[in-house]
Simulated scan of single mutants.
Amino acid sequence: MLQPTSLPVVLVLASGRGARFAASGGAVYKLRAPLGAKTVLEHTLDAVRASGLPWHLEDAGHPGMGDSIAAAVRATAQAPGWLVLPGDLPLIRPDTLRTMAAALADPDCAVAMPVCQGERGHPVGFAAVCLPSLLALTGEQGAARVVREQAQQGRVRQVEVDDEGTVTDIDTLQDLERAAQLLAARG
């Protein structure tokens, strides 16, 4: 992780088992799967580094997404907010990460969710007010409960983005092939 700043920390989650990828015929762990000249995770980390935002890689084994998020937040508890980014989003763009960080600067926004062509994606941003709820997460559900809590208070902001990388995750070999096509089209 980089030095503490007034910017939210990008939490790159790389603790999953990748069971769906293996079930689809994947011979390696999905984050280590080759995508062009790099692995899926290397592409994700390159975008995070290029964003200039502080970041934390959570790659210790955890039983579920909620556990991974809670561990990453615990490791960066002094941050003013967090962008939760699964490691299997290799096409995410640095400018999108900065856009999501900027959305959290609004004092009325506790949760910022990117939306690309009507589809919700990642990273989902959480302001510091969400700290207790994020630390309490366990299991497979991720932070959906935290989003619902904040939505009931009218503190969730949807941020329109033009970045297919927010919704292009790698869960199967077919997803990897589609990501390779999109990456090639970007040049």
Results as ranks from 00 to 15, higher is better:
residue 1 M to C: 09
residue 6 S to L: 12
residue 8 P to Y: 00
residue 9 V to A: 02
residue 10 V to I: 12
residue 11 L to G: 07
residue 19 A to E: 14
residue 23 A to I: 07
residue 25 G to A: 11
residue 25 G to T: 11
residue 26 G to M: 12
residue 26 G to L: 11
residue 28 V to Y: 02
residue 31 L to C: 10
residue 32 R to A: 14
residue 32 R to Y: 06
residue 32 R to G: 14
residue 35 L to I: 11
residue 42 E to G: 05
residue 48 V to M: 00
residue 50 A to R: 03
residue 55 W to S: 02
residue 58 E to A: 11
residue 60 A to D: 10
residue 60 A to E: 14
residue 61 G to T: 12
residue 63 P to T: 07
residue 69 I to M: 07
residue 69 I to S: 09
residue 78 Q to Y: 08
residue 84 V to R: 00
residue 90 P to S: 12
residue 97 L to M: 07
residue 97 L to C: 00
residue 105 A to T: 13
residue 107 P to E: 09
residue 107 P to Y: 11
residue 108 D to S: 15
residue 111 V to Q: 03
residue 116 C to G: 00
residue 116 C to Q: 13
residue 118 G to V: 06
residue 119 E to Q: 14
residue 123 P to W: 00
residue 128 A to Y: 09
residue 128 A to Q: 13
residue 130 C to S: 14
residue 132 P to E: 01
residue 133 S to E: 15
residue 135 L to I: 07
residue 140 E to A: 13
residue 140 E to N: 14
residue 141 Q to C: 08
residue 143 A to D: 15
residue 143 A to Q: 10
residue 143 A to W: 12
residue 155 R to G: 03
residue 157 R to G: 06
residue 158 Q to C: 08
residue 161 V to C: 07
residue 163 D to T: 11
residue 163 D to N: 04
residue 165 G to L: 06
residue 166 T to A: 15
residue 168 T to G: 04
residue 172 T to E: 06
residue 176 L to D: 05
residue 182 L to A: 04
residue 187 G to E: 13
residue 187 G to C: 06
